[in-house]
Design a protein around this nucleic acid. Structure first.
Length: 676
DNA sequence: ACTCATGATATTTTT
DNA sequence: TATCATGAGT
């Protein structure tokens, strides 16, 4: 299909700043990839950098560029996430900021544990749940470019007061462990550019054409980073949609995209308003809703296609009724249009809302996948396994060292661990150094000291092995066999099934490791950890979002997760005050506009059919409460919606036969797979 | 060190 | 209402 005039204009643009306002479904990715392909004809590949927010987006973008220009022409082109580019730069130059270049990256679990430890040490008797709040404030401060010195606690805010105390200590502790957290990746890269003029100059000269996808999601640090990068050449092309800015709560600054014209005077601004995804009726609803937001780049999505089926709003009695209505419609649509299960998505505001739908889908034997919730690399056994890897790569990582010190149990109890930490503080030595001291028996007793000694020599042995370029996968497996990791998993499990799952998860880590080894020319533990901690897994791991979306199953996910995806048939559920817009936002005087955008994102996921649902009553925290329909419904002119009565549609016999057939085929597949 | 009871708490999560 | 984390008790 040829490009439309606006798309062509965006592709052809060369020098200076360019903002492409790409409405939902307007062929944004095509424009970026075509533009990169066009640039590659005039500019050496290594001077072009395209930045995305997800590894998946980066991977897809690179693939699509390669499709157009060939692998050879794309060689040297940088397509990366902000974070992976940051890590790449930091691995080269972070010593200029006083860290060692073998720094490791903390996952949120590691961060939380550190904050808890600090809290226990400096503010004993604090409720533990406060740690999460403090960590969130630290994260927000970092996203807003506030280092410990700049942090301004709001008066009369106890969490802020605590954060002001802990933030500097947190940052010190990270540095002492030679560790950086996620937000540091960007913050330290910026700091590097600001403090090391030669480094900044080097990258400015190397990266002469900068492209950014999903610009509406950039935060203050990313914005500054881009300014630094483009300070000389000014060749910055950003693509995004202010109407789809839904990460404000994480520090994204919608103002970045709104003020682009002012920030980069002379910038060219192009709007992509032709939509290639949704039916006319769906677009009409989307436009009607988003009009209610002030402060936006005015856009009006339009389609050359047909108006399509009516958009339905259905007010249900309660949550269960809502779930039944959804399932009923799935049956009808499958019957009438021969749709696959994967054509349907159920979108909600909060993950907790999935349950009623899961129950109903299960009851009807409809296959479904849940996206979100606990991620693979967040599971305890996986984190424990990774903790070993992290310590082998960076023994200064005290948090993970403590995590594995007595896991699996080896007789170094909590008392002894406390003692060791105290000694480390007293002697001003890292924990790793303390563990290696010959005089430990004097402080811990012989038995414990022996256990510590065995632990240390185990780690040293494997460190030496891996340092000499041993076989990554067999060595790792040998380590876990030696420490009895799987035995520990069995011992802790409540039932054999759980044990099996956990062991499978552990094996999945090895699979990921060997996939990494196979892919990479020079495979190192550090390299693997980097991939893992940036959530960058080239092979979609079992249970990942990519993997799940491939199956033929109804998809359940939060509105946030749905951004960037599309489905023939979308159910947007829980359209009630308190759910969407979310109650927390209403209570705390939050940003209702962002909730509106969230709703808009949900609507624009639909290609052919869109159903909006809500309940008149809902169980909330165990109480049945009356619900008020979402204000967003009132913002859509009634003539654009088909109101459906609450009573379920009568079931016709033929349809019932289809349902029965579905049921039996499910049973059969179950029987087949269960035989083994 | 493990189990059980109690009580607090309850958004969204690209890296 | 469900979940989780913590603390008392074994």
């Amino acid at each position: 299909m040829p490009l439309n005039p606006q798309q062509q204009q965006a592709v052809a643009h060369r020098q200076g700043a360019l903002l492409v306002l790409a409405g939902a479904g307007s062929g944004k990715t095509r424009v970026i990839t075509r533009r990169i392909a066009a640039l590659l004809r005039d500019v050496p590949a290594e001077q072009i950098v395209a930045l995305t927010f997800t590894n998946k987006a980066a991977r897809e973008m690179r693939e699509r560029v390669i499709d157009q220009v060939g692998r050879a022409a794309a060689k040297g082109l940088i397509v990366a996430t902000f974070h992976s580019l940051g890590v790449r730069i930091l691995r080269q130059h972070i010593d200029r900021l006083g860290y060692k270049t073998n720094f490791s990256i903390f996952a949120t679990g590691d961060q939380l544990r550190l904050v808890r430890d600090l809290l226990a040490r400096h503010q004993p008797g604090c409720s533990a749940s406060i740690a999460e709040q403090v960590l969130a404030r630290i994260g927000r401060a970092k996203n807003e470019l506030q280092r410990p010195a700049q942090f301004q606690p709001r008066i009369d805010d106890p969490v802020d007061a605590l954060t002001a105390q802990l933030y500097p200590r947190y940052q010190q502790a990270l540095k002492a462990c030679n560790v950086i957290d996620f937000d540091d990746i960007l913050l330290l890269t910026l700091q590097l550019f600001e403090q090391a003029a030669d480094v900044a100059r080097h990258y400015r000269q190397q990266l002469r054409y900068v492209l950014v996808d999903e610009y509406q999601d950039t935060n203050a640090v990313q914005y500054r980073l881009l300014r630094e990068l483009c300070a000389e050449h000014g060749n910055l092309c950003v693509v995004g949609d202010d109407d789809q800015s839904i990460y404000g709560w994480r520090g994204a600054v919608a103002g970045n995209i709104l003020d682009f014209g002012r920030d980069f005077p002379g910038a060219c601004i192009i709007k992509l308003e032709q939509n290639y995804r949704s039916s006319g009726r769906i677009l009409a609803v989307a436009n009607a809703l988003i009009r209610h937001n002030p402060d936006r780049h005015d856009k009006r999505l339009w389609s050359a296609g047909a108006p399509g089926a009516p958009v339905v709003y259905r007010l249900c009695d309660d949550g269960e009724d809502e779930a039944m209505a959804v399932v009923e419609t799935i049956h009808q649509e499958r019957y009438a249009r021969q749709r696959a299960y994967r054509d349907f998505a159920i979108l909600y505001r909060t993950n907790g809302q999935s349950r009623a739908f899961e129950e109903q889908l299960r009851y009807e034997n409809i296959p479904y996948v849940l996206i979100g919730g606990q991620q693979f690399f967040d599971r305890k056994e996986v984190r424990d396994a990774l903790a070993y890897f992290k310590v082998l790569a960076n023994p200064l990582d005290e948090i993970n060292l403590l995590r594995i010190l007595n896991y699996p149990r080896r007789g170094i109890g909590e008392q002894s661990a406390e003692k060791l930490i105290a000694l480390s503080l007293e002697w001003q030595q890292s924990l790793w150094q303390v563990l290696q001291r010959p005089d430990l028996p004097d402080h811990l007793g012989d038995k414990v000291a022996q256990a510590v000694h065995d632990f240390v020599s185990l780690l040293q042995r494997y460190r030496r092995l891996l340092g000499r370029g041993g076989q990554l996968v067999p060595d790792a497996q040998a380590l876990f066999a030696e420490i009895g990791f799987e035995d520990e998993l069995c011992r802790q499990a409540e039932d054999p099934k759980q044990a099996r799952r956990r062991i499978d998860n552990l094996h999945e880590v090895f699979n990921a490791l060997s996939a990494y080894v196979e892919r990479e020319g020079v495979a190192t533990l550090e390299g693997f950890l980097e991939k893992v901690s940036l959530l960058d897994r080239d092979e979609p791991v079992r249970g990942s979002k990519e993997e799940k979306l491939k199956q033929d199953a109804v998809v359940l996910m939060s509105l946030h997760s749905s951004k960037g995806l599309e489905f023939p048939c979308v159910f947007l559920v829980g359209l009630e005050e308190g759910s969407l817009p979310h109650g927390k936002v209403l209570e705390e005087g939050g940003d209702v506009r962002e909730e509106r955008r969230l709703c808009y994102v949900g609507i624009t996921r639909a290609r052919e059919r869109l159903l909006l649902l809500g309940a008149a009553r809902r169980r909330r925290y165990g109480r049945l409460q009356p619900q008020v329909p979402s204000r967003f419904l009132a913002e859509i002119p009634p003539e654009l919606l088909e109101n459906q009565a609450a009573e379920p549609a009568p079931v016709d016999p033929q349809q019932q036969a289809v349902r029965a057939a579905d049921f039996f085929s499910r049973i059969q597949t179950l029987l087949k797979t269960d035989n083994g």
